[in-house]
C-alpha cells in the first residue's frame, strides 16, 4: 500500500490577476511532496468550494491581494460547511492587515500567512496540522 498523499488546492479568489505568489506556493507544496490542484485567478468562492469537494482535498489555500479577503475567505468556509465538507481546512495568505486576523480566525480560517512568511513555515504547518483522511 502506498502512503496517503496530502492533497491541497491553491486558489485565488477575487479580481486581482497577480498569481505569482500562488504559483510559488503551489510549487513549494509540490516540492514538499504534496499533490496540488491549481486553479488560477478569478475564482468565485462557489467555484472554489465545488472544486475542493470534487478534488477531495485536505486543505484549501486561498491567496488574495485585492483586499476582499474579509468577505471571500469566510464565504469559502461557509460554503464548504453548507455542503457537508467542513473537514476541509481553509487557510489564507496574501496582503492581510493584522487587524483582520482575528475576524478571519473567528470565521473558521485556520491559519494566515502573509508575504513575509517563510515557505518552510507554511509547509511545516501543513505537515503538523493536516492528516490525510480515510473514511467517508
Amino acid at each position: 500500500m502506498t502512503e496517503k498523499k496530502i492533497r491541497i488546492m491553491v486558489a485565488k479568489p477575487g479580481l486581482d490577476g497577480h498569481d505569482r505568489g500562488a504559483r510559488i506556493l503551489a510549487r513549494c507544496f509540490r516540492d514538499a511532496g504534496f499533490e496540488v490542484i491549481y486553479t488560477g485567478c478569478h475564482q468565485t468562492p462557489e467555484q472554489i468550494a465545488a472544486t475542493a469537494i470534487q478534488e477531495d482535498v485536505d486543505l484549501v489555500g486561498l491567496s488574495c491581494l485585492s483586499g476582499a479577503h474579509r468577505y471571500l475567505f469566510p464565504r469559502v468556509v461557509e460554503l464548504l460547511k453548507e455542503q457537508g465538507a467542513d473537514d476541509i481546512v481553509v487557510i489564507g495568505g496574501g496582503i492581510i492587515p493584522d487587524q483582520d486576523f482575528q475576524t478571519l480566525y473567528d470565521a473558521g480560517i485556520k491559519a494566515i500567512f502573509t508575504p513575509g512568511s517563510p515557505l518552510d513555515t507554511i509547509v511545516r504547518w501543513v505537515r503538523t496540522n493536516i492528516r490525510p483522511r480515510v473514511n467517508l
Binding site: K5, A26, R27, F29, R30, D31, A32, G33, F34, E35, V36, I37, Y38, T39, G40, Q43, E46, Q47, A50, T51, Q54, E55
Partner: peptide
C-alpha cells in the same frame, strides 16, 4: 508526479473552471 519529490501540480482543470459549479 515529480519523480524527485513525489509531489505534483495538477493544473489541467484551470481551463475547465467555468463548469465547476
Amino acid at each position: 508526479t515529480s519523480p524527485f519529490t513525489g509531489g505534483a501540480i495538477l493544473g489541467d482543470r484551470i481551463r475547465m473552471q467555468r463548469h465547476a459549479e
